[in-house]
Amino acid sequence: MASGGFTRLPSGDVIVALRLPSPGGTPDDHIRVIVVSANRQRALTRLRNLGFRTARLAGNLEPPTGDEINAVLHHPDGLVWRRIPAAPAEPWQSIAALLGPTARRPARS
Rank of each mutant, 00 (worst) to 15 (best):
L73I: 08
L98P: 06
I84L: 11
G12A: 05
R105L: 12
P85W: 02
R104C: 07
A103F: 15
W92L: 03
D29A: 13
A38E: 14
R46V: 06
V36K: 03
R82T: 04
L18Y: 08
R46Y: 13
V14D: 08
P85C: 06
T7S: 11
A55C: 01
W92T: 01
L73V: 03
H30D: 06
I15M: 05
R105D: 06
N39V: 02
R42C: 03
A71E: 05
P88I: 02
A103L: 14
G66E: 12
S22W: 11
G4F: 06
R82Q: 12
A103S: 15
N39F: 08
L44P: 00
N49S: 10
L99I: 12
R8L: 08
A103N: 08
W81A: 04
R104K: 14
L61N: 09
D28N: 14
V35H: 01
S37Y: 01
E90A: 13
A17Q: 10
A2V: 04
A43F: 11
L9D: 02
A55E: 03
V35M: 00
P88Y: 02
H75Q: 11
P85K: 04
L79W: 09
N60S: 10
G25V: 14
P91Y: 05
L99Q: 06
W92C: 01
E62D: 13
P10R: 09
R19C: 04
V35T: 07
P85N: 07
T54S: 10
T54F: 01
S94T: 11
S11R: 12
P106R: 15
A58Q: 14
H74N: 15
R82I: 03
V33K: 03
V72L: 06
P63R: 04
G100M: 13
H74W: 08
T54V: 03
L98M: 11
L61Q: 13
R48D: 04
G78E: 00
V14H: 13
G4D: 07
R104L: 15
H75W: 08
L9G: 01
G12H: 09
G59Y: 11
V36D: 00
N70A: 14
V16H: 04
T45I: 12
P27C: 05
T7K: 11
I69A: 04
G4I: 04
G51Q: 09
L99Y: 10
P101F: 15
S94R: 02
L99D: 01
R8Q: 10
L20G: 00
G5V: 09
P63H: 05
A89S: 09
Q93L: 13
G4K: 08
P101G: 10
R42K: 15
L61G: 06
P27V: 07
G66R: 11
M1T: 09
R104I: 15
R83G: 01
S109C: 01
R8N: 03
G51T: 08
D67Q: 09
P63Q: 04
